[in-house]
Design a protein around this nucleic acid. Structure first.
Lengths: 140, 140
DNA sequence: TTTGATGCAAATGTTTTGCATGCAA
DNA sequence: TTGCATGCAAAACATTTGCATCAAA
């Protein structure tokens, strides 16, 4: 693949942050180094890097996709109040694939799991940023 | 809440099908009984019914949201080939909330989990409908 | 050079919303 | 009647794409 300063900038930024920014956030963050970069290029490279396995795309129930520069397998927590996405330190849940496969005649290749609730910051505050997604009550 | 024939029609349709249709599919399906219904009304009522807990909204990694007239807690399988969404018969995974909470200082209120792979139909066919979403390799 | 990557802008697909009108209570 | 629900159309969002240009190899 051909080198590009923009792609390098995106990857470097994602590797440097602990949060899970949106394409728009990444776009704004790297404008200092790339004053003329376009949002389309950011999206194009995020898609490419995701396909290469260099980064992860996190689809949340609400709002734009988030991106994760940590490509080691791990799970995420999503705060229902401030929508922060946090990494969780927990073992693989590979065993749940077997549970799913038990009464299913297709092939279970994997799963996606997100946890939600209140993040540490929102637990200790009246409100975090004012937004509050409707509590999800079903694990489906 | 005030009665509406449109809302009733949407709910009746969702309760009657085993699949997990999109808003657009629902819109088309109930046009026989509601020739003048608008997509906006379908979306408005789907949002309302979801908030009431009468139905479930299923956010998949790709494509429009799907809706589920079965409001009993259960998990879903998503075929990476034909994108069919199927119900899974499996026990609650409530225990994984404890695993997630173990090294986390916020509050884990719940989780969402989807399983993916090939559905029974696609397992036995060269291709199902031609589409094929990129295999997801990380359980994150 | 050659070919992939970019910037720009327009297009796409999904969902939401404003507003005048209609229908349930 | 009163006000929520509707139809319609426009707007809002997030994301993708066509195309001429630019830059890496």
């Amino acid at each position: 693949m051909k080198y590009s300063r923009q792609r390098e900038s995106i990857l470097r930024y994602l590797r440097s942050v602990k949060c899970h920014p949106t394409a728009e956030t990444i776009y704004q963050a790297i404008q200092t180094d790339n004053p003329n970069i376009s949002l389309g290029t950011v999206y194009r490279n995020l898609t490419l890097l995701t396909e290469l396995g260099e980064i992860n795309k996190i689809t949340v129930f609400d709002g734009p996709d988030r991106f994760d520069g940590n490509n080691a397998p791990h799970y995420h927590f999503i705060c229902r109040k401030c929508r922060a996405v946090l990494d969780l330190e927990m073992d693989s849940l590979a065993h749940i694939n077997l549970l799913a496969a038990h009464n299913f005649s297709g092939t279970i290749e994997g799963h996606m799991a997100h946890f939600y609730g209140l993040c540490p910051a929102c637990m200790n505050q009246k409100s975090c940023n004012g937004s509050d997604i409707p509590a999800v009550t079903k694990s489906s």
